[in-house]
Simulated assay, not measured.
Amino acid sequence: MGTGPAVVIGGSGADAHWISLRDRREGVSPAESVAAARAQGAGPVLVEPFSAEDLPLIAERADGTVVGAAWMRDSGLVRAAARLGLPVLVQRDPSATLEEWLEVAGHCVAEGNDGVVLCESGGRTLPGGATPDLALMRAARERSGRPVLAGLGADPALAAAAIAAGADGLLLDPSSTERDVLAAREAVKIVGALTRRETPDSVIAAREAIDRVDAALAVLLERRAELAGTIQRLKPVGGFAGRDADRERRLVAEMARRAPVLGEARLAPIMNAVIEAGLHLAEERRSAPRD
């Protein structure tokens, strides 16, 4: 799995923004397109050129270059983009093999640019979004040792699966809505907290990592409380009178196996508080007046 927080690249509210100059809008110059992307937020702006003529603008005003799937096989343009010295994001052509995809990254390195990130967007599409090949994405990461993003088009539905599969980030369409970006960021936060180990090097970074873990904890605790309430409704004897001390001890022992640093002695009072909170919630709901 990856390390550190995964990123979301896309529209408003994302960690970084990207635009494609291939999608030229009538009456809008490339410079205006880049300026509009820059105005969406404070994050980096990545730009996919339409042709080599766009490279001077990218060198001057962008923070990174996107080698789009449509021109991944244009080695001349790839090498010229790499020579800008900016980070390069290489999207896989749907028909390209893993070896061909990694070869493009090699072209960038040959031009003295080792700041290459791969992006798997897949060849098939679902309504509203792309379907990345997550197995191929993992293989690319393992073979290259480079960060790999999952391109999701305009649909964040696969965001959680992509992060669980080891994606270092998610690439959404530049036109993705703020709601789509928020959904992707939530998947990054919750699933990433469970699957990505972080080694922060500052107090601020450590607190941000803790915030991500706490977010995942909140979701899991809420789910546990709901399931505990279901058990209370099904048990012959519910509430505090129906507590099973032996089961709770086994639960703590099993948790200690997964959290040996905390151990049973520290986990026991934590789980006791969690269990009691669920029981209190179940009792409150049972005694609440019904409409």
Score class of each variant (00 low, 15 high):
residue 19 I to H: 01
residue 35 A to R: 15
residue 195 T to C: 15
residue 209 A to V: 01
residue 252 V to H: 10
residue 247 R to N: 13
residue 14 A to Y: 14
residue 63 D to C: 09
residue 60 E to C: 08
residue 226 E to P: 00
residue 84 L to V: 01
residue 59 A to Q: 11
residue 220 L to G: 06
residue 21 L to D: 00
residue 58 I to H: 01
residue 65 T to Q: 03
residue 153 G to W: 04
residue 166 G to N: 09
residue 173 D to F: 06
residue 231 I to D: 09
residue 236 P to H: 01
residue 241 A to G: 09
residue 74 D to R: 11
residue 72 M to I: 06
residue 289 P to C: 01
residue 141 R to W: 09
residue 229 G to W: 08
residue 153 G to S: 02
residue 136 L to V: 06
residue 86 L to P: 11
residue 231 I to G: 00
residue 290 R to V: 03
residue 173 D to K: 12
residue 266 R to P: 09
residue 65 T to Y: 01
residue 100 E to A: 10
residue 107 H to A: 03
residue 111 E to N: 00
residue 252 V to R: 04
residue 81 A to I: 00
residue 245 A to D: 15
residue 151 G to E: 01
residue 46 L to Y: 14
residue 253 A to C: 05
residue 234 L to C: 08
residue 191 V to G: 10
residue 63 D to F: 06
residue 198 E to I: 00
residue 159 A to V: 09
residue 279 L to M: 09
residue 63 D to Q: 08
residue 179 R to H: 12
residue 57 L to G: 05
residue 246 D to L: 09
residue 208 E to Y: 09
residue 277 A to D: 11
residue 212 R to A: 11
residue 228 A to Y: 14
residue 232 Q to R: 12
residue 226 E to Y: 04
residue 5 P to L: 10
residue 192 G to I: 04
residue 287 S to A: 08
residue 185 R to N: 00
residue 240 F to I: 10
residue 18 W to M: 11
residue 135 A to R: 13
residue 282 A to H: 06
residue 97 T to I: 02
residue 60 E to H: 14
residue 209 A to Q: 08
residue 158 L to Y: 02
residue 67 V to S: 01
residue 107 H to L: 09
residue 275 I to C: 02
residue 168 D to T: 14
residue 55 L to H: 00
residue 200 P to R: 04
residue 247 R to M: 06
residue 130 A to V: 07
residue 85 G to H: 13
residue 126 L to A: 13
residue 172 L to D: 07
residue 129 G to L: 01
residue 135 A to S: 11
residue 163 I to H: 00
residue 98 L to S: 00
residue 119 C to L: 05
residue 23 D to Y: 07
residue 244 D to C: 12
residue 19 I to A: 02
residue 78 V to T: 11
residue 80 A to Y: 11
residue 2 G to P: 15
residue 248 E to R: 06
residue 187 A to Q: 14
residue 225 A to K: 00
residue 201 D to A: 04
residue 69 A to R: 13
residue 87 P to D: 04
residue 103 E to L: 02
residue 130 A to H: 11
residue 143 R to Y: 00
residue 225 A to E: 06
residue 198 E to L: 03
residue 4 G to F: 02
residue 110 A to D: 15
residue 14 A to I: 04
residue 123 G to D: 11
residue 63 D to S: 04
residue 232 Q to M: 09
residue 177 T to A: 03
residue 91 Q to Y: 03
residue 59 A to K: 13
residue 125 T to Q: 05
residue 23 D to T: 12
residue 7 V to I: 15
residue 290 R to Y: 02
residue 141 R to K: 15
residue 252 V to Q: 07
residue 148 V to T: 12
residue 148 V to N: 13
residue 228 A to C: 09
residue 165 A to E: 13
residue 10 G to W: 10
residue 62 A to W: 03
residue 206 A to C: 10
residue 87 P to E: 11
